[in-house]
């Protein structure tokens, strides 16, 4: 029986008497050796592979086009661009060490490996914001912008929700606090990025700063996998530890995600208000639609009214848009069928 408020102990690196296949994701017995062919949740290997297949690095993206375009942006666009950039960087800065910290208390080695990959990707995201900044403004201004992000009361208020939970786990790493950390990690990766994403994709719609949005698109693709992994982690945590699967904790999820939703709306009101072409009311519905998706990912019901995606243009770029040559292990088959639609006599629902 899991004592939800009892500290998890830091796991020894090797426990030779225990099996390689862990008996639990927390408080389990595990040798510490990882054989991917013998793991408790085989689907985690697929997820690991998917994460690795996403690999990218900032330096691969040539910023010349954006450097040339930067001066054609309005003063408002430039200001918002820099503020969103540093705000997103501050979120990723939290995520890198937190993911490695969690590794110390997770007993299943396959989950540890995935947390390690996620942490690495967050480090790349962090670097990409620096890389963008270095292309467009001098160091002095970069530092001013980071200071601005640190002092901005709105940014602080948003970060506080996450920080409180992450710090609580650092102070006393209990199963309950791990669960809460995971929910806040979904808030960070699955909700808090989206006003920023909206801004960069909006510029992209106007054919502006496309190299930056290419990076944003890579980041979104990674974050989607992270939010998916963390939601799987939550489901498994609750299933393996029924003591955590309580009404109060389900309530906690609804309340905490709702708080993040309100904060994201507030942030959007503030940061996107002068951006022509983004309808703030529509963005509010978008955040609710987004949160509903997160609830369903962890197996809960919608909290907000059911609706279709109100801002379909916020999405990962297609391979064609990124001019990406496929580096798949197998060649994609070329298919020769003509595109058909409901005018050909069938129904499209």
């Amino acid at each position: 029986m899991t004592q939800v408020d009892q500290s998890l102990s830091k796991i020894k690196l090797l426990n030779p008497t225990y099996p390689n296949k862990a008996t639990g994701i927390i408080n389990g017995e595990s040798s510490g050796l990882l054989n991917w062919n013998d793991i408790a949740y085989p689907q985690m290997y697929d997820l690991y592979q998917t994460l690795l297949a996403n690999f990218w690095k900032a330096q691969e993206i040539n910023m010349q086009d954006d450097i040339k375009q930067w001066d054609s942006l309005s003063e408002t666009e430039k200001d918002i661009f820099l503020r969103i950039n540093t705000q997103l960087a501050s979120l990723d800065s939290l995520q890198t060490p937190t993911m490695t910290h969690v590794m110390d208390y997770v007993t299943d080695s396959s989950f540890k490996a995935i947390f390690a990959v996620i942490s690495q990707q967050e480090a790349v995201h962090n670097e990409s914001y620096s890389y963008i900044l270095s292309s467009i403004v001098p160091l002095r201004e970069q530092n001013e912008r980071f200071d601005q992000a640190k002092e901005d009361p709105m940014v602080r208020k948003r970060n506080q929700l996450i920080l409180d939970s992450y710090e609580a786990f650092r102070e006393n790493p209990t199963p309950q606090r791990l669960f809460e950390l995971a929910i806040n990690s979904i808030n960070l990766e699955g909700i808090y990025f989206y006003a920023g994403f909206a801004f960069f994709y909006h510029l992209a719609r106007k054919q502006k700063m496309l190299k930056t949005s290419t990076m944003i698109s890579y980041i979104q693709r990674d974050e989607m996998q992270h939010a998916y992994f963390v939601s799987q982690f939550v489901r498994i945590l609750l299933t393996e530890n029924p003591e955590l699967n309580t009404k109060e904790n389900i309530q906690y999820v609804y309340q905490t995600v709702d708080k993040a939703v309100q904060l994201e709306k507030e942030w959007a009101d503030y940061i996107l208000k002068d951006i022509e072409g983004i309808d703030i009311g529509e963005f509010h519905s978008y955040v609710e639609y987004l949160a509903n998706k997160r609830f369903r990912q962890i197996g809960l019901d919608n909290f907000y009214p059911e609706r279709d995606n109100p801002m379909e243009w916020i999405h990962v770029f297609s391979d064609e848009m990124m001019n990406e040559t496929k580096s798949d292990f197998f060649e994609q088959k070329s298919r020769t069928y003509t595109k058909v639609s409901s005018s050909n006599g069938f129904d499209e629902l």
């Binding site: 069928y337 058909v340 069938f346 129904d347 499209e348």
Partner: peptide, 12 residues
């Protein structure tokens, strides 16, 4: 697109 060619596709 493929089912439309090879079968009696009714609905998607």
């Amino acid at each position: 697109d493929m089912l439309y060619v090879h079968t009696n596709l009714a609905v998607t």
